[in-house]
Every structure is written in C-alpha cells, then in structure tokens.
Design a protein around this nucleic acid. Sequence first.
DNA 1: GTATGTGAACTATTTCACAGCT
DNA 2: AGCTGTGAAATAGTTCACATAC
Lengths: 212, 212
Amino acid sequence: MLKKIPEETITRLSYYLRALLFFKEKDITIISSKRLADFLKISHHQLRKDLSYFGQFGRKGVGYSCVRLIESIREILGLNREWGACVVGFGNLGRALSFYKGFKDEGIAIKAAFDISENKVNKDYANLKVYPLEKMEKVIRKEKIQIGIIAVPKEAAEAAATRLAECGIKAIFNLAPVKLDIPKDVIVKDVDLSCQLTSLTYHLKLLEAKQS
Amino acid sequence: MLKKIPEETITRLSYYLRALLFFKEKDITIISSKRLADFLKISHHQLRKDLSYFGQFGRKGVGYSCVRLIESIREILGLNREWGACVVGFGNLGRALSFYKGFKDEGIAIKAAFDISENKVNKDYANLKVYPLEKMEKVIRKEKIQIGIIAVPKEAAEAAATRLAECGIKAIFNLAPVKLDIPKDVIVKDVDLSCQLTSLTYHLKLLEAKQS
DNA sequence: GTATGTGAACTATTTCACAGCT
DNA sequence: AGCTGTGAAATAGTTCACATAC
C-alpha cells in the first residue's frame, strides 16, 4: 500500500473482478493466477504483482478463493458500497450508458439523466427519470449522486462539466471528445471513442504495407 | 521511424489531430508545440517527442504549420483516405456510434449496421442501412468494409467477432465487456466502459479517505 | 530571444527469479 | 510438484538538456 500504484493496475483490477465473477458463476471456488491471467490474456506475473500492491490474497501452493478475492477487489476499488451516478446528455450514447446493466453489478447506479431537449425531459424511461438541466443541483443532492457522466456533444461538454462541478460532483466520466478545463480537485476520466478507433487505422495501414 | 513507437504515442496523435483541426478552424496558421500541448494538458516535450518518431514537421524558432501538420498526422494514422466500418449490434450504443459525426471527419465512414432483431433490420436510419446478420459477408465485400465495431451484449460478442473475422475483417473495435478469443492476425482494440468507469470509484474512495 | 529535434537521464512499469508455503 | 508473493532486473516511456535553426 506504500508504493505508488500504477493507474493501469487499477483498471486491470476491474478486469480481474469481472473475470472472477464469471468463474464464480461457473461454480469455481479456487482459481490460480495462471488460469485467471490466461483467461484475460495477460501474464500471471502481472496479475500477482497488481494484487501485491494491496496485500496478500492467495494461499501459496493453492491459489485464490474466488469469493474472497472478489470481496477484496471490491473493497479496494470501493465497490463494496453503492455509488450514485447521473448521465448528462440523453442522446443515443447517454441512453446506452443509462441502461447498461453492467454498472449496477459493479455498484454504480444511474440515478438520473439530464438533457436540454424539451421532449426528452420529464419522462420516465424504464425507471430512469430525465430532468431538465435546471434541476441538476436539486436532483444531485437529493439522490446523493457522486459521479457525473458526460455524454453531450463536444460544444456542450465544458459547460456540463462546470455545472457538475458546481453541484459538488468530484468525479467525471467524460465521453465527449474534448479536454475539459475544470478545477483539478475534480477527478476526470476521459474516454474518447474516436481517438481510440483511429488507432486501429494506423495499425491497419501498417498491416497493409507489410503485405504488399 | 526505426525505433519502437509507443502505443500511447499513436493515441496521442489522434488528439493532436483534433486539436489542430480546432485551431485551424480558428484561422490559426502557425502553432507552437507549447500552445498545442497546453491546450491538451500535456508537456510540450512529449508532443515533440511523439512527432519525432515519424520525422521533422516544424520549423525551428517558428513552430508548426497547422495545415501541414494536420496533413502529416493524417498520413501517419492512415486517415488520408477513407476507411469503411460497420457496426454490429444496433442497440443504443450501436446507434450512438453509427450516427457519431466525428468518425467521418477522421476518415472513417460507417457503411452498414447489423442486428439480429427482426424489427430493427431492413430499415434505413438517416442514410444507414441495418441488415440481418446473414447478409454480413455480402455487405462487407460490397461496401469494402475493413473495420468492425462490436456493440452487442457480452454473450454475443465472441460470435460477432468470429463472424467478422470470417468475413475478412482485420480490425475490430470491441465495446463489449469481454476479452475476445480470435485469431491474432486480427487487430483488436478493446474499450470497456464499465472498467474505465470503475477506476473513478477507486479514486473517489481515496479522496474521501483523505478528507476524513 | 524563441522554437524544434533528439540523445541522454530519469522514471515508471513489466517481467523475471526465486524464496516460502501447501 | 504447484502456486503465491516480492525484490531485483529488464524494458518501456517520459522528461530533460542542449544543439541547431529562425
């Protein structure tokens, strides 16, 4: 717990958690780092090293208890309790995130969505309420929301982020293709789908060059 | 061009490209690495180092020509021509990706979508045709599609990937939360939204611990 | 003076090697 | 024998320092 923990390690812990849930579902009680790592296509050294930043979770000569490792990783990631999130922007992407089942499994509940469009607002979509932006502060306080997910067009992203920060949000998941300029005490995770997609064309180009 | 190029460099090139397009839009013709880097909140050393893997693009004492650097990065990333992509799974996420304008700006055109659902299929949505899975091979060949985007539920992802590979697709952008087990000559880029989101809760937990 | 380009220094991360437990 | 845990070695990636050009 003393050394600096790589950010990549944190991301991988989520992967471990999901894989473990998968194995638990299959009634596997004890799992080795090798098996888990093979499943995720990483090295078993890496897996054990990642875990070692946080403590000792396995038994030498045996392996890891699936259930107990799940519990431990949940605790490390803060997923042993429920977090409230809201989605800003109720377009296709906002909808996709709002209704994605996987978040709930991992302790993140989408409590509300916000949109500027008159005809999306004040409706219930499968237990989710969509509010106009003006209600943001009230809803965030009432529903105890700690995480904001930005799924608005890029022009509106900065304003959405500022608004979220003003409402006391300390963690933002930004899917808009802009670098947000907001106070640095707010934790921001950017996921830029088109930049990610673009890295594929680079490799495709190399592949074609190699073949010709 | 001889040294090994970090994968992160490739991703950052996409960011540079987008920022440059933004500056060009604002009629800025010459830009320094410092200004571009500040805008993207990275170090100017990093930016110059990244570019140096591919050649020399600036003028000492002056800076970079916006237009020429855009052209150069497009060439590096293979974005100076059009790539055809298809989306498998026409749920909310699939729709979001299908209609996202940003891809087209970057040379990636979504040519078709596929879905198993009877009532989504064989319809036109804003110039995009949604086909049943059986038509995949035919459509991919006809439309010269090189990139497959997987936006199906996790249970269906592996089959979708295998199918795409069988149709000759060499690059897959996988948004389903599973590690695909397909031939390694297929380039796969995984973007797992819920694992990314989860890394936020870890930092939120740390933040709370610090404050108490 | 200002800005790029790049080898060298530094830092971070991954992989290895092996001690220790079952 | 099989598996975890971890310091040490190796590798990868970032930052620095300075030579060069405008």
